[in-house]
């Protein structure tokens, strides 16, 4: 076990308007539990506003949690957890050459002794299938797929244990997406990496992940081993997500605060208890957890 998340919660305070100082509290993430095992890929699936990115930021400590904790089962925190962002057009500094971009992790973590950096960069570029020449160019000379390779090279430069990928293929074309997904799998096997792979694309998650965590409005809906969850979805939301017919599903906003299950208004099976109480996570079988009242 590399990383364990226990009862993790995060709230944001947003002011109603520019002129008022009244604040509403939005529970962006609530009661998240999971474990990341070594050499596996955890896919986090959810819609816009379901708290996926908040989760990523909490794991790399860009945000502090309000509740719960994240236990890292290794030393050297920042070095061992690196991040790949969605948009490679904004995550690479346009003023820097690729050489400087890739050298920066070594400088920040004081791993640069000045002698073998060049050979390190050469190996790094080989790993992500880029040619050595690209070092002297700027990011704007590359296509989206090549830039994402550079961003991945930067993330794996100092040999982290965990890579947090926030929608890394969402802005790429289909053929390029396939290349990048293959690259992620190749790197996982070569370097023994573990990923937290965030996406709203079910097909991508079902291809790449070993375990999945499905979020709805900041709450865990269903999680567990991919095959168990995808072959036998139990939560009404997961069922809808996995079928192509969504019917009349309307999304509620995270600010419509009530204490019950967030999926209550859209659920065919909802009863009074769903409105009053947030369901607790129950274990239905080994490696399969669901948060729903109707399964009790």
């Amino acid at each position: 076990m590399l990383l364990r998340v226990e009862n993790l919660g995060k709230q944001y305070a947003i002011s109603k308007s520019f002129f008022s100082n009244k604040e509403t509290i939005v529970q962006a993430l609530d009661n998240i539990n999971f474990e990341l095992r070594e050499g596996t890929i955890l896919g986090v699936l959810g819609e816009t506003g379901s708290g996926k990115t908040t989760l990523a930021k909490l794991i790399v400590k860009l945000l502090e949690p309000n509740n719960g904790k994240i236990i890292y089962n290794f030393d050297n925190f920042p070095r061992n957890v690196q991040m790949v962002f969605q948009n490679p057009f904004s995550s690479l500094n346009p003023m820097m050459k690729i050489k400087d971009i890739l050298k920066e992790p070594f400088l920040i973590h004081h791993l640069d002794n000045g002698t073998d950096t060049d050979s390190k960069l050469r190996i790094l570029l080989e790993k992500v299938n880029l040619s050595y020449d690209c070092l002297k160019h700027h990011p704007d000379e590359f296509s989206g797929g090549q830039r994402q390779r550079i961003a991945i090279a930067r993330a794996i430069a100092i040999e982290p244990k965990v890579l947090v990928c926030d929608e890394p293929t969402a802005s790429l074309d289909l053929s390029v997406q396939a290349q990048i997904l293959n690259l992620f799998i190749k790197l996982k096997e070569e370097l023994g990496l573990s990923y937290i792979f965030i996406s709203h694309n079910i097909e991508v998650i079902s291809f790449i992940a070993d375990e999945v965590l499905i979020l709805y409005e900041g709450k865990p809906v269903e999680r567990g081993l991919k095959n168990k969850v995808f072959n036998n979805p139990l939560h009404p939301y997961t069922k809808i997500l996995l079928s192509s017919d969504i019917g009349e599903l309307q999304k509620t906003s995270a600010q419509d605060n009530y204490s019950g299950c967030k999926f209550y208004t859209n659920c065919k099976f909802s009863s009074d208890i769903c409105k009053q109480m947030t369901p607790e996570e129950i274990k239905t079988e080994e490696g399969h957890y669901v948060s729903c009242h109707i399964l009790k």
């Binding site: 296509s143 797929g145 090549q146 074309d173 289909l174 053929s175 390029v176 997406q177 396939a178 290349q179 997904l181 293959n182 799998i185 190749k186 694309n201 079910i202 097909e203 991508v204 079902s206 291809f207 790449i208 995808f230």
Partner: peptide, 20 residues
Amino acid sequence: KCLPKKENKDKFLNTIEGNV
């Protein structure tokens, strides 16, 4: 073939070599 599919059990996806 580039599309990731749920039924697909292969380890790697098919890709189109080269760039657009």
